[in-house]
């Protein structure tokens, strides 16, 4: 199949483009997403939440390439045979590109590795996600923005999950850029409109060779079921994911954060109750 813009072989369909034109299309679309959502000002300091997977590596690579002032922060949950591979890749990548990398671990922050607290095969996304968000916010207080590798697939899954769980109050927290709230570093998602398939294609062409490694806790997660469902619908009805996101964006402003922001009495992190969820979980984890 030939590229729609030249006579070279296509590497992607819808849009049908060769390597060179695909890269141009991809980078232009990410730049436009950053610009249209007013995500970053040139003088701002951005921390990329990096795992070493294709999404965060692509985010880190592009923000660095576009000339922004970026550093990376990785969280090591302590999952044997999973995070150690991606972190090793991330270290090499940052060293090669001259990007400062900070690594924080559950071991040093919580006192235990995730795999010593939750047996493999048991649900861990709630506890893991709580600590991850807590650490990312805690260690990015000196930055203007946190950039994450969330993509169109992640975001359309999140919208659908919140609908299925009747949690539409969470709609206000989603979107390409979070609102400015005291105590929270503002989050931006430069890959918001890029499909996972596009990111993987870009990553492969660029030779990132990010290791594929599935989290042993994520296989049977609720998100995994929603992901499979959406992918099945998308393959039969292309455009489903972007239509869902466009519809969500058109109504997003109508939702507001319903809870008053307070500050945790233990760690002073922003939260919605006396003690933040991370501190409450930390107490439980220490008792395990």
């Amino acid at each position: 199949m030939k590229c729609s813009k030249c006579s070279n072989n296509a590497v992607f369909t819808n849009p049908t483009l060769c390597k060179e034109h695909f890269i141009e299309y991809f980078e232009t679309k990410v730049k436009d997403t950053i610009k249209q959502n007013n995500m970053i000002q040139k003088q701002e300091k951005v921390c990329v939440a990096a795992s070493g997977g294709k999404d965060s590596i692509t985010t880190l690579y592009l923000l660095h390439k576009f000339g922004y002032n970026v550093e990376a922060l990785a969280v090591d949950e302590g999952i044997e045979g999973y995070r150690d591979h991606t972190l090793a890749f991330l270290k090499d990548f940052c060293e090669e590109k001259g990007i400062i990398l900070h690594i924080k671990s559950y071991q040093e922050e919580v006192g235990k590795r995730l795999d010593t607290v939750v047996p493999k095969g048991r649900p861990a996304c709630n506890i893991c996600g709580t600590f991850r968000r807590h650490l990312l916010n805690k260690y990015t207080q000196d930055y203007d923005k946190i950039a994450t590798g969330h993509n169109l697939d992640d975001e359309s899954q999140a919208v659908l999950m919140n609908l299925l769980k009747a949690q539409i109050n969470l709609f206000a927290r989603q979107g390409p850029k979070t609102k400015q709230i005291k105590g929270f570093t503002q989050k931006i998602k430069p890959l918001y409109l890029m499909k996972e398939k596009e990111i993987m294609t870009y990553s492969y062409i660029k030779g990132f060779n990010t290791p594929y490694n599935e989290c042993p806790y994520a296989k049977d997660s609720y998100r995994a079921h929603v992901r499979d469902l959406l992918n099945s619908i998308e393959s039969k009805n292309p455009g489903t994911k972007i239509n869902l996101i466009n519809k969500y964006l058109s109504i997003r402003e109508g939702f507001s954060q319903d809870k008053e922001i307070r500050f945790c009495e233990v760690c002073n992190s922003p939260c919605s109750s006396q003690i933040c969820k991370a501190c409450r979980l930390k107490k439980q984890v220490k008792a395990v």
Partner: peptide
């Protein structure tokens, strides 16, 4: 080792890699 599209042809002589785009976490 070159990416191809769904509309391209493959034959018995080819070595094919099917790479997952799904994030692992």
């Amino acid at each position: 080792k070159e990416i191809i599209t769904l509309e391209d042809d493959v034959s018995n002589e080819d070595e094919i890699e099917i790479l997952s785009v799904v994030s692992g976490g």
